[in-house]
């Protein structure tokens, strides 16, 4: 519960000694057959994942924080916790401002209904009113450059069109804080440029951003602050080039065409 002592201005995002564990199964879809087979083999299907361990950091307003690290380092889990999707197991996260999320590709859309309906549904789920969404609709449709496709079911969209619409929705809802997870591969080169420009514009308006990416080049170019996470722990926090150097030395690959590429 918010208490008055937390109200005075401080960092926009404050992550305080946060641990996130969850129990999950090995199977993608738990079914009866698998359950019976496992019982026969006396295996336990549930396993505890300690995705984030004692992580603390603050993000001041207007900064662009990049989070890098290997697969399974807990980056996505941490960002989901900041978005309020996965509450922490211990510790606490304070977020001041309106959050917009772009987590995982092709996010939040129902392929059976049109792009227009999806924009409305996504906006309503995120807590916007019909009027607010209607206000932004033209801008979103214009930015995504989907033309007549907006009124077709989304199963007719290419994956690039999917990502373009997702990006357009996330950046046009006037967020104070934008959380982006691996979603910059949206569309073609031209759209990528447009997306980067839009994000720079948001930062120019003193909005805050967290960017999770494996594309170290993107982090270096777009962020002014960076975190490297490894196996759930925060390794270092510093300016992006330094963090990237430490990380690449750690994984012993060095900066190469692959790590800098926007994948």
């Amino acid at each position: 519960m918010p208490s008055d002592s937390d109200k005075p201005v401080g960092p926009v995002i404050s992550v305080q000694d946060v641990c996130i564990t969850y129990r999950t199964t090995f199977e993608k879809s738990p079914t009866l057959k698998d359950a019976v087979l496992r019982l026969g083999r006396r295996e336990r299907s549930v396993r505890e994942v300690e995705a984030v361990k004692n992580v603390s950091f603050d993000v001041p307003q207007g900064s662009v924080l990049g989070i890098i690290g290997s697969n399974g380092a807990g980056k996505s889990t941490l960002v989901r916790a900041i978005a309020g999707i996965l509450p922490p197991t211990t510790g606490r996260i304070v977020v001041r401002g309106k959050v917009s999320t772009l987590l995982a590709l092709g996010v939040g859309f129902n392929a059976a209904i049109s792009g227009r309906e999806n924009v409305l549904l996504g906006g309503l789920a995120a807590g916007y009113s019909r009027a607010e969404i209607a206000d932004k609709y033209e801008e979103i449709a214009g930015f995504a450059e989907l033309g007549d496709f907006m009124d077709l079911p989304m199963r007719t969209y290419s994956s690039g069109m999917f990502s373009r619409l997702a990006f357009a929705v996330a950046v046009h809802m006037e967020p104070d804080i934008l959380l982006v997870d691996e979603a910059l591969s949206a569309g073609d080169a031209k759209f990528k440029e447009k997306a980067a420009a839009k994000m720079a514009e948001l930062v120019g308006q003193a909005r805050t951003m967290i960017l999770v990416s494996h594309a170290l080049g993107t982090v270096r170019d777009m962020c002014n602050d960076a975190i490297w996470m490894n196996k759930g722990r925060l390794m270092i926090r510093s300016e992006p080039q330094h963090v990237i150097n430490e990380y690449t030395r750690f994984v012993n690959v060095g900066e190469s065409a692959y790590t800098l590429e926007d994948v």
């Binding site: 519960m1 509450p87 510790g91 304070v94 001041r96 807590g127 916007y128």
Partner: peptide
Amino acid sequence: YLGEYHVYEPH
């Protein structure tokens, strides 16, 4: 209106 201030703590 949009719940601008959020605290996420363990449930």
